[in-house]
Design a protein around this nucleic acid. Sequence first.
RNA 1: CGGGGAGUAGCGCAGCCUGGUAGCGCAUCUGCUUUGGGAGCAGAGGGUCGCAAGUUCGAAUCUUGUCUCCCCGACCA
Length: 526
Amino acid sequence: MTQNPQIKPAPIKHALTTTRAGDFAAWYQEVISAAEMAEESGVRGCMVIRPWGYGIWERIQHLMDARIKAAGVENCYFPLFIPLSYFAKEAEHVDGFAKEMAVVTHHRLIADGKGGLVPDPEAKLEEPLIVRPTSETVIGQAMARWVQSWRDLPLLTNQWANVVRWEMRTRMFLRTSEFLWQEGHTAHADRTDAMAETLRALEMYRSFSEEALAMPVVAGEKPENERFPGAAATYSIEAMMQDGKALQAGTSHYLGTGFAEAAGIHYQNKEGQQALCHTTSWGVSTRLIGGVIMTHGDDDGLRVPPAIAPQQIVILPMLRDTDEYEALLAYCEELRSSLAKQQALGEPIRVLHDKRPGKATQKRWAWVKKGVPLILEIGGRDAASGQVSVVRRDRLWQDNGKVNFSAMSREDFLGRAASEIEDIQRSLHAEATERRDAQIVRGIDTLDGLKAYFSGDEDKAGQKYPGWVEMGWSRPTGAALEAVVEVLKSLKLTIRNTPLGAGKPEGLCPFTGEAAVETIYVARSY
RNA sequence: CGGGGAGUAGCGCAGCCUGGUAGCGCAUCUGCUUUGGGAGCAGAGGGUCGCAAGUUCGAAUCUUGUCUCCCCGACCA
């Protein structure tokens, strides 16, 4: 077919078999398995998080935990099991979570006489325990004990934990029945203080996403119909995935006094009177990893932002001829230790000398798929002449279809390694921001316009959606809002949030015909 | 939880309709040759065919049940 092989660039042979354009959902699955991030566990909706995936989570924990502590919040740990009676106290909360609860009813197994085991009917629990879907209720019980006086406020706590929600439809990292997260719970003297904390947590998530995950997000308030069960106001950060869908990447809730009332969290104020606390809760989960995959991944696998990469540089000795092993490995080892003494992004550089036996090229592609930011390949001649050969994962290919390695002296590389790492972090963020901004459309101010924009919206393969619409609306409530939600639902759309700091829009609300009072983002979502 | 699809070697799949104790590609191992880089040739190892019952002389193949995964929908971080 190719008439002129000399001038026609060779087709790139990508590391994955599925492309984003071909089948985005299958591509997502393949990245997770090819990058050895997670695998299925045999238990419905639950996954095994493998070292590379868990390493990314540990980085997220490490950086997020520092921010949480810097805000004066203290870590603690509450039980996995919550007495049913605790949970039952907040009515809206119950409505929201009751359908997806794991319940513990027995404490012993006995033989069933057929070689199996069954719960012992004699060992039924007096009161069933639920496996926590979130911990407002138990933590509320503790807060009620801990808070007596205005001097005890604000009470700022956080826990890193696993939670369980019996999901009907699961996807690795994005929605699993059990997931890992951080949940902050705070109690305050009044609304003003609690609201400030809610927004502080939201801003913490926004800056964390942008800076650590290199994932641009919009921070804003969720519409009434999307509120956390029992919350007075819910805020979120929303990220745009490469297929144009929105992902809620973190939430922060102002809970008002509802939970305080249910758990009896009150204090004596300076005037000597009893007052109810205003509480907040906020969390991010392993879902962030799904966001990172769908923000930065490409047709060769994952690309991990350096700030959260378990390893930022991998050194691959090109082991081939036994005679040079020793000198080559010594050279690589020296390189590793020189790099490890340096700092990038405010921390020591994380570098791995991968001297496992095996074909070097095989190992290279494994690291490409894992998305390690910088790969160094070192051959015998490099070692002898003090050179290195390096490729940036975010700039993997040359136009001619070859891997974009560049050779330089060891000194040159040592001199620029840290800035390369920092540049990759910046560059991933810039790329994602540019893509997102290109997929936000403005100026649609009628319902027909919205319908037209999203009709036949999927591309030929059904893998790509036209991004987000930024528009004004009149912020209807109650039944009027329900009507809007129904219209959007028929278009498979949702209101993501009202971005903070967006000025009052001009014109009329396309749903109600009333004057628009605030800006919203409308999109398909995960 | 409703509709659809699927579970066979580490990964991707064929075989199933028309039952006769399992095959291909990649990966793995061995040898030779090559080699500044995703090598070639030859040979080898590796499978309770998701699980459990049933039909049958005989089941990956037919029947029933069950578990898990994927897609669409309802629901949700």
